[in-house]
Amino acid sequence: MLNFEMYEWVNILGLIIGLVFGAVAQAKQFCFSGSIKDYILTKSTKRGASVIMAMIVAIVASAVVSSLFELDFTTTQYYKSNINYVTIILGGSLFGAGMMLADGCSNRQLVKFAQGDSNSLITIVFVAIFAYATAKGFLYGLFSPLTNNSTLIEWSSFIQNSTMNIYVIVGILVLFLLYLIKDIKRIMTLGDGVIIGLLVALAWYVTGVLGEESMERIIPLTGITFVYPTAQSVELFMFYQVNELSFAISLVCGVLLGTFVMTFFNKKYSFGCTASQNLNRTKYNMLGGALMGTGGVLSIGCTVGQGLTGLSTLAVASGVAIASILLSGTITALILNKYNKLPMCFIFEWQDRPDYQI
């Protein structure tokens, strides 16, 4: 009964990784964009600390997996030849603005939708449409003079897309983490970051080690990412004969299912937060989704695809991408907050604070 082909086991494990990711993200509301919003609105650093912890664990755990099983991360999309840093920065900037306008990045929208926020479905659909259009459709041709510009590619070659020093990057992240947590005892509350970081390394193992044994299909060495896989999921839903179920699509389905199941145990976050504030979010969801779909493809990943998975390979391009996303997201959030359009859903703060509330 369990006599599956190896590529089927890869898909099953992708579904399981997604299940765990969705359950953890729902229980703790793990979110890149939310961590920025928390600090701007309440000076809370709890979710930001979880994000940094996930980065540290993803980098270290992926390095261990790479060393033990001889995985070559330079064969992944994060080290693609003819890198164009202008495109990377533009894509990251578009994605960062989009995730703030839509109130959540691509994986966050999957979690929000599965936990009961129907507005997020609008964003998911627009992410899928514009990601596909940028990768293979009308927008691909529109951006082609920029993405394939020989002058920009030549300029980009002066900064080689090499591997960053793991000790320097992890050291910087550890210092940043210590600044955010203030009290070393609080590290014990960042379990969500640890689990999600480990899932990144597990994804590398599944696609790189188990996937290598697949004789029926070629399994590319990939990690956890959500923008283009969301587009692929919609394509699979509409044209099943054309597209085949993959690790990335299984991952997206797992996040939705894991979040939905966790919502039954954790009622605290199982609703949208903007309806009661009299804000019409539809236009923001549409525009934000469009920007994230386009930007995520141009920057070769989203906050998770570049901020965790890409960064775990220590590619220079991933560092540039996530820096662009965070800078753009912060600027956009500050502008939205100025006009009182940055809604606060919940308060996330350290439980050892006397003024802690939720």
Rank of each mutant, 00 (worst) to 15 (best):
A203T: 07
L298Q: 11
V252M: 09
R186P: 06
K341F: 06
T332S: 14
I36Y: 04
I195H: 02
N3W: 12
G208M: 11
E154W: 14
N82R: 10
I347T: 13
I358M: 15
T189N: 15
F4E: 14
S270V: 14
Y179T: 06
Y140H: 15
W350Q: 11
A321R: 12
T74H: 04
I219Q: 11
N11I: 09
G272D: 03
L308G: 00
E154Y: 10
V125C: 09
A133H: 10
Q232V: 02
K182H: 01
I181K: 06
G48Y: 01
V297F: 03
G329T: 03
V24T: 05
L287Y: 10
L327M: 10
L173M: 00
V227M: 11
D352W: 07
Q357Y: 15
K338C: 03
V57D: 11
V111S: 01
I88F: 14
T45M: 02
F113R: 04
A275P: 04
A61N: 05
N148H: 10
F113S: 06
F95K: 05
F95C: 01
N11P: 13
I335S: 11
M6G: 13
L110D: 06
G329M: 02
L251H: 06
V24W: 08
M286Y: 10
Q232C: 05
A128N: 01
S214P: 13
F138R: 08
N165G: 01
Y240S: 08
F237G: 00
G319P: 00
V86D: 02
T259E: 10
R108Y: 07
S276A: 09
G305M: 05
T309S: 04
S299W: 08
N165F: 03
I17A: 05
M292P: 11
N11L: 12
Q241F: 13
A231D: 04
G141L: 09
G307L: 07
A315L: 06
L199Q: 09
G193Y: 08
N84I: 02
N149T: 00
L177I: 00
Y167C: 13
A317E: 14
V65H: 05
G14I: 07
C253P: 07
V227C: 03
R217K: 15
I224Y: 07
D72N: 08
G258D: 08
S150Q: 12
N84R: 02
I219M: 08
K136P: 00
G301E: 06
I124V: 06
I122W: 13
L202K: 03
G305T: 04
L326R: 01
S150A: 11
S106G: 00
R108K: 12
L342P: 06
S150M: 07
V252G: 09
I56T: 07
K185T: 06
I129D: 08
N337L: 03
I56W: 03
Q160N: 12
L202G: 00
S106R: 02
